[in-house]
Every structure is written in C-alpha cells, then in structure tokens.
Design a protein around this nucleic acid. Structure first.
Length: 435
RNA sequence: CGGAGCGUAGCGCAGCCUGGUAGCGCAUCAGUCUGGGGGACUGAGGGUCGUGGGUUCGAAUCCCGCCGCUCCGACCA
C-alpha cells in the first residue's frame, strides 16, 4: 500500500476522550473511528490488524480440532426462554421487536443458539465429541463503555462450544482449548496466564480466565515466574494424547496465579520466584455440564439405548479487545510496537527524498519485493513527519531510504520493538523483513 | 445505576461569567524556500456555535426541554 493513496488518517494530537494508551494510539494511528458510545468502525490499517488476530485464532482453533461455523448476530427471544436466561440476563442484552412484533435480540453470546443447532443435527453418541466455534460480532449494552475497543458495546469475539458424552470427555475438551489458547496468545506476542475464575452468568463449575500482562491493565495480578518458562509447543504437547493434555493442564494450573480479587497472601508467601503486574482479560473458558443441554432437550441415544444428556463447555477470546490489549502490552511514547504476527504491514518503506532517483528506485524495488507486506511512505513530506508516523503506526520494521546511502544501494533498517537500527544492503533488508 | 462534566472548523481549544454579526494553534489547499526526527514564509478555503423552544431590539453567550459524548465509582468478553 502506498501511503499517499491510502486512507490512514493519523492524528498529531490526542482526541480528548481517549484516556488509556491503546485507545489514544488506535485513534492517532488511524486504526479505528468511534461512531457511537462503545461502537467503532475499523479503518484499513485497523482492519488488517483485526484480520491478522482473527486468523491466528482461527488457525489454532482448527488445529485443536474445532470446526468453524458462522451464526447470526440476531437471535430470537424464544431460544433464550428455553434456557431460562431471557428474563435473567438483564439490561446488557439489547432487545427489540421486528415488524411482526416478534421479540428479538442482538446476541451477547451463543450457547442457546449452538445448542439448538447441534441438537437438531446430532444423531447418535457416535457423533461425539464435537467442538464448534465462530468468530462473530457480539453486542452487550454495557452501562459504561470505555477504553476504546477494550470495552466496547459491539465487539468481535471467537466463541467455541464443546459437546461431550460425559464429564471426563468434557474435561479433555476443556484442556484442549486451554492449550489452543496458550498457543494463540503466544503467537500474538503476548504473555498469557490462565487464572481460576468465577463462572458468572454463563454458569458452571470449572472456569479459567486468560490474563495478558500489560503495564496499563485493569487489574493487579500475581503469579509464579514458572509461567514464563512453560513450553506449549506442539513438540511438547499434542492434542491427540489425553496424557499430554493432563500433564499440560497440571503444569498450567499448579503454579500460583491470581488477580487481586482472589489473591491469597498466605499462598503467595510460599512462591519462591514472584511476578506481579497489571493484567487484561482476553479470554475465558467454562465447563458447565448440562446447564443448557438439559433444559433445551439436547440428548442422544447411547450404546445401551439409554438417553445421554451431553456435557458442554464454552470458550471465548475477545478478538477486537486483543487489538487494544496487544497495544497496551507493546507501545512507547512514540506509538505502537506491533508484534510481527499482527502488524498491519511487516514494514514501512520511508522514502526520505521523493524525487531523488536513487531513493525512488530503491523504494520501488523494495515495495515490489515485499509484495503487499509493506506500507510505502511516498508522501512528499519531510523526513521527520515520516519517522513520527512510522513510529506511531508501529510497523515492526522500517526501511529508511535516504540520499546519503541510497547512492550505494544501502538503506537503514530499524526494528521498532527494540529500537535497533543498522545500515544494510537493499537485498539484506528485504531478506530480513521477509524472514 | 449513583456522582461530575462537556458539545464552537478535520483535531486540540479560547470566547460564555458581564448578550452586540466567531477566534487561536495544528491540519488542509496554492506558491516559494527547505530537505535524516512533525521546518519557515506568503496567501487561501473551511463553522446550521449539538438540537428544539423561551427571554431580548439583538443569543455561541441568559433560561427550559431533548439528543449526543466523556470522566470517577459500582458492574462486566
């Protein structure tokens, strides 16, 4: 993308409504635009980030054996009456009526809908286990939306739902999701810690929330440094082995980890290598047994002819929230420092002197060589403005092409995350960026 | 849902108290000079002052209603 031809409205000044770093930077870097309280439009650069996060989430869900579906944003109130949640959900649910006076709602979550879909399609115990997920917009009419996309009213969430014949099977499904989540967050460039959690309105008796570390996080978290060394790679743990999953689960749940609400000073005192900091919740997993399958009449014939009521779990990742959370974890005074995996472009090409033949030639060559992975700053602006915008937008690499070194076919390569910079040949720069 | 504010040009703000035909910085456009960390100069364009009503000779300014938004707290992917 050529910056001169793109719609990336960066701001030099901070909009007054933005209080926290990620909100300020998302607005300043031209990623999103607020359209109403807690509701955001995603602009070209922001959408690329959102899609990158979504794709990593998708790949890890698929790897765990979950299958992607897509359920609608609008649901019928009848469905929620079957589970008994329609009256209990409260003001957070956005309710309305269609032209025929039918009661509808904009879905805040999909347990009822997936249970309804699954019960009409499943035929036998042989069909189990299953895990279905989708990545869809949700709406929760928060009393007080804030922090930009971190606490919006409309947000993109990945939610998965597992179906198993018994508790033991559901526990395996739960562990698979925990493993998939750890891999997902690792790929997204953030340190995530699973912490035992309350189950809230979803219900159930086994639940963990995934907290990622960021200096500006909402809550204080305490955890054992052992979490920093856990290997969650496919080489260490496989989805196909119940023993691996059990080992993994033990490893993830044994060291101390708690948010300030559940913090236990006595247990904390026993931890040898302590870590504490601020955290943001970006995922939450629940096992809730037959809470929905029972009232909604989901049951199948077992091998002995007896009817079985399946055990379920649900697993959420806040995709749009992650865009903000990743910025909270990776930024400085100048702007965003995107991890490679989620950056809208891998590199920015800064042409410090458009019109200079050597600069123009090298920039075009780099732009073509990076094939869609680069944002080319070809604007006729001053160098300082380009540096400032590149730092603000947070491209992992900056290929700085100036007349000083361009004559020798050399460029300056800057790594945004670390601030390191070095002069290299054009070829080396491209190879490094694409590696 | 309790408390506190704000709405004036794309963004950040002043003007309001004490009513008299709207201003500053940045951004934008044109030109000149510049050219490695948001440069300088000259000129130009851009505003139903959130909205409806009221008071007044006259309302951005005073009064009332409504709408929108933000912040603090309680609550939450």
């Amino acid at each position: 993308m050529r910056l001169s031809r793109s719609f990336i409205p960066t701001l030099k000044e901070t909009p007054s409504e933005a209080q926290i770093a990620s909100h300020r930077l998302m607005l300043r870097a031209g990623l999103v635009r607020q359209t109403a309280a807690g509701i955001y439009a995603w602009l070209p650069a922001g959408l690329r980030v959102l899609r990158n996060i979504e794709q990593i989430v998708r790949e890890e869900q698929d790897a765990s054996g979950a299958q992607e579906v897509l359920m609608p944003t609008l649901q019928s109130a009848d469905l929620w009456r079957q589970s008994g949640r329609y009256d209990g959900y409260g003001q957070e649910m956005l309710r309305f009526k269609d032209r025929h006076d039918r009661e509808m709602l904009y879905g805040p979550t999909n347990e009822e809908m997936i249970t309804d879909i699954f019960r009409t399609g499943v035929k036998s115990y042989r069909d189990f286990p299953q895990n279905l997920y989708h990545i869809q917009w949700k709406f929760r009419d928060e009393v007080r939306p804030r922090f930009g996309v971190m606490r919006g009213r409309e947000f993109l969430m990945k939610d998965a739902y597992s179906f198993d014949l018994d508790h033991a099977g559901a526990v395996v499904a739960y562990r698979k999701m925990m493993l998939a989540y750890m891999r997902t967050f690792q790929r997204l460039g953030v340190q995530a810690i699973p912490m035992a959690a309350d189950t809230g309105p979803i219900g159930g008796d086994l639940s963990h929330e995934f907290i990622i570390l960021a200096p500006t996080g909402e809550s204080q978290v305490y955890f054992d440094a052992a979490f920093e060394k856990i290997d969650v790679s496919t080489a260490r743990y496989g989805f196909g082995s119940d023993q691996d999953l059990a080992d993994f689960y033990t490893t993830m749940t044994t060291p101390y980890a708690a948010t300030d609400e559940k913090h236990d000073e006595a247990a904390w005192a026993q931890v040898a290598d302590k870590r504490e900091g601020r955290g943001i919740e970006v995922g939450h997993i629940f096992y809730f047994g037959t809470k929905y399958s029972e009232p909604m009449g989901l049951k199948v014939a077992g091998p002995d002819g007896q009817m079985i009521v399946p055990h379920m779990g649900s697993y959420g990742i806040g995709v749009s929230r992650l865009a903000g959370a990743i910025i909270e974890a990776h930024h400085d005074e100048a702007g965003i420092k995107w991890p490679d995996s989620v950056a809208p472009w891998r590199a920015a090409i800064l042409n410090l002197k458009p019109g200079d033949t050597a600069c123009d030639t090298i920039c075009e060559e780099a732009y073509t060589g990076l094939a869609g992975n680069a944002l080319y700053d070809d604007r006729p602006d001053r160098a300082g403005a380009k540096f400032a915008d590149a730092d603000l937008m947070g491209h992992p690499w900056q290929i700085i092409v100036g007349p000083r070194s361009a004559a020798n076919r050399r460029v300056e390569l800057k790594r945004r995350m670390t601030g390191e910079r070095e002069e290299v040949s054009v070829e080396d720069a491209l190879a490094r960026v694409l590696k």
